[in-house]
Amino acid sequence: MDETRFKRIKDLPSTHILGTGTAMCAGCGGLEAVHEVYDILGEKTVFVNAAGCMTLLSIYPFTPFRGSWLYTAMASAPAGAQGIRDALDILLEKKRIPRDEDMDVVVLTGDGSAYGMGLSATSGAMERNLDFIYLCYDNEGYGNTGQQYSSATPHAARTSTSKGPKGFPGYKKDLFSIWVAHNPLYVATVLGAEPLDLARKIEKAKELKGPRLIIALSPCPTGWDFDPSESVEIGKLAVKTGIWPLKEYIDGKVVHTKVPDRRLPVEEYLKKQGRFAHLFSPKRNDKLIGEIQESVDKYWKGI
């Protein structure tokens, strides 16, 4: 499908269906992505949510959704999605609901689930070719419990469990490639601060039938330590520095959807965030900044 409804930014929806009044932090980049995605998917969506910040979207008796929502344990949202898909299919087959009441089943989890605890359930769902969308909002840590590190935390970031002068000693897992290795129908990376790219990808995913998996980098003022007003700028810098490549996997190929002409140095992105402050003060850590730059350069050389 090449024809997109979203040619220019003016084609983006001007009304929003996600309800206001949720408990997410002011300036939450994850909520920004979720509301943009929901506008494209529409009301006939069942969200299957694993424990994380977004669990607090629906707190009985309040919900921002207009369709359905189900809460599962942290590791098992894709299994929950299987149950709902099966139930909908049975209802359709028995003609207990009409075709136009069918719903998109969307798993909504953080990176803690997607990159870690929930990975095995996701692998199984792809293996069974489950017809579902997976939306991971990636705030690079266990945000809801106070930003402990997760498998998505970038090298050198300070989290509440990596407070030393070198920050997190590990490296961010390449979930995109792990998902792609399963050869599902569609995989993409998106960002709330790039709404046109996001809209095109969600539009494409919505039209397909099978496993479709999306990772949204989600700048998190609370966990990454920056002023809420900078959420969008920091997201854009993640793209401009090449740290967050916008890409998709479709028909067996990985395509980059937005290649920065001239990549900005990674420190433009790093220095805006308190979680990397130790790389710049009291003394600049050229070695660590250089390592991060190198890994980004290496990625882009390889494509």
Partner: peptide
Amino acid sequence: PVIHGAATSELMKTGLWR
């Protein structure tokens, strides 16, 4: 705990956070 209404979160006046 089943919610039947849509977008009931709008009853929460988060403007008070500002």
